[in-house]
């Protein structure tokens, strides 16, 4: 029962969070000033996602194998590797680090 309540509330809430922008603003041109803000949303959120996906475990900041994966990714990016290679290199580096530690 608790599971169904959880799924219903989180499911509906997420559908609403994801849907509100496309429903309300769909197809409209936004004013230039807002465009300036929205165009910076991608780099800003990406950087935040990188930080949380690399260093956060719950509410703790940790240094673990993911950091090794990211270091390898940086090298691959500097060497102008294709994105697929960057992803694979990061995963392999993290897996190997985790296996060794």
């Amino acid at each position: 029962m608790t599971e169904w309540l959880l799924v219903a509330i989180v499911g509906l809430g997420t559908v609403a969070l994801k849907g509100v922008g496309p429903l309300v603003l769909g197809g409209r041109r936004v004013p230039d000033r807002l465009t300036g803000v929205v165009s910076l949303l991608a780099p800003t959120l990406l950087a935040a996602l990188i930080v949380t996906n690399t260093f956060a475990t719950g509410t703790a900041l940790v240094i673990d194998a993911r950091v090794a994966g990211m270091a390898a990714a940086v090298v691959a990016i500097v060497l102008r590797a294709p994105i697929l290679v960057v992803i694979v290199v990061a995963a392999v580096a993290a897996a190997v680090t985790r296996a060794l530690t």
Partner: peptide, 21 residues
């Protein structure tokens, strides 16, 4: 995690961020 797949997501985000800046 044993396959390092948790590092795949931030790596993608970083690769794409570089193209955004």
């Amino acid at each position: 995690e044993d396959l390092g797949l948790d590092a795949a997501f931030p790596a993608l985000f970083l690769a794409l961020l570089v193209g955004q800046v």
